[in-house]
Design a protein around this nucleic acid. Sequence first.
RNA 1: GGACGCGUAGCUCAGCUGGAUAGAGCAACUGCCUUCUAAGCAGUAGGUCAGAGGUUCGAAUCCUCUCGCGUUCACCA
Length: 567
Amino acid sequence: MIRAVENFKSDFKYSFKVEDILKKLTLEPPKNPINGDMSTNLAMILSKDLNLSPKIIANNFMIYISNLPDIENVDVAGPGFINIKFKQHVWSDFICNLINNTENWDELKIGKGKKINIEYISANPTGPLHAGHARGAVFGDALASLLTTVGYSVIREYYINDAGNQIEKLVESSLLRYNEQVTNKSIDIPDGLYPGEYLKEVGKTLFEKYGDELQLDHKEKVFEKVRSVSLEVIMGMIKNDLLKLGIEMDVFTSEKEIISGHLLVDILKILESKNLIFSGVLDPPKGTDPKNWKKREQLLFKSSLYGDDSDRALKKSDGEWTYFATDMAYHLDKMNRTKGDLINVLGADHIGYIPRISAAVNALSNGSISIDTKVCALVNLLEDGKPIKMSKRAGNFVTLSDIIKAVGKDVVRFIMLTRRNDQPLDFDFKKVMEKSKENPVFYVQYAHARCNSIFRSSKVKEEELILENPKLLEDNYEIELIKFIALWPRTLELAAKNHEPHRICYYLIELSSIFHSLWNKGKDNNIKFIVEDNLELTNARLSLVKAVAITIRKGLSILKIEPIFEM
RNA sequence: GGACGCGUAGCUCAGCUGGAUAGAGCAACUGCCUUCUAAGCAGUAGGUCAGAGGUUCGAAUCCUCUCGCGUUCACCA
């Protein structure tokens, strides 16, 4: 294509800059297949430079493409699109290539082995994972898997907020549960502490480990012991739940260790050297009542220089570090370890936090590290259209473990990705288990099971199939399916570049739809996959079925979902 | 009040970073099972892409403003 443009330029002695044009040039399959297999906007973008109408340019340029091999014809349409139609064999050869390279026909090397760190879940270690964590967990994990597939070296990271006020409350709550074990009397958990039943497990473990030797009246002495047992037990629950979802993190980083290390001193030095730190008083945010505003002199970071609305406090008035300060230190730590870009997956309730952390990463890395923060919107849990009531105060919220038990890991993973991450999502326990077209997991799995069913009937083993005569794939419906399969690498690429794993789901649903449609052509148009008296044709069509099955499995494997072979 | 996100068919949502006549699925009508799984498929109907400007060959997509909805806004984590 580039060569064609250059020849075109020199033959007509045009004076445009090829590099400039290439920036705006597109060469892609048009939305509507009626307009050919590939389409380019060349004539339209040249029209201004050459002061000629796009149609004239397009007509002059056509010949430079139509002489290329594998081109059936070229025409000019609409405002000046140059539409290219490939010869039929391009598509059947494509299937041939796919069948011969089932493992790496779609291999993309976008990542080039570069490191990238994805922090996700990072749920507080004060209780088991619940429904709200599920989406971020699945999203982050699918994104990690997707980026691994396209050649990045991905680090899956979980940040444990094991410091601060909430841990004190956790220790207190655990001690009460421990007391229950010692005295064998049940205790009411006061407001403000963690009432959940799961802490009984912690109490039990403490009792098994220490007997009754923990002296409750010397809280400071037992604090560390209770803390470490509580965290161990709860993080054990969390890791176990994640495992049920098919998730294994590479790195767990402790907030407490960040605080006790030298990183906070490091960031102070860095910020000082850049003159980004000062002692001052924040203005009240606009719209708040100034009467309620307490002026406080604090150590501040000039995050407003990096696009944040306000500067941010690094130290509390009592001299302790703020959460933001330790988080900044944590991000420095991540950058040091990763030596690559960062992705954070957060819940929608932390949206306001994004600008300051981006500012921090920007300032600390001199803009050399990019951070992309993906926000996961709410999940509405429904039962047949009606919201499920949850009361976090009473401690009886729907846990992740409950959900997996009810519908299975694969359904959870798929459904969580059937909506863009920043859009709210309905998760209806009844609908996601339905065996019908309305349920996208089922729909895709059914398509795959059908592929397998065809192979069962044909008595040919899928893995042993070799395509003998690709030219027999010539029906329009077949070509349509092949073209869609050919879009798979592009889908992967876009999903990876935009950090949008949901695109994989949508692709699989559409692929399934096209396949189901072709299947039914067996009735109307007599395009059956298995043709009794024609082994060669059967072989060609089975190859197409194999290509569908391979692509569905590839997509599912990125989402870490098991394909179903028989339903 | 500020920041961010959203507003696309009656409903739930896609829309390939600016392309051609804006797409699916539900719901509504009409068809298709002696057939490789009808757990499915085909067809009809349904739209001022919230509104108004701007950028250019070309806008649902980019910019500005207005309206509506949501989230969020100090030393919590």
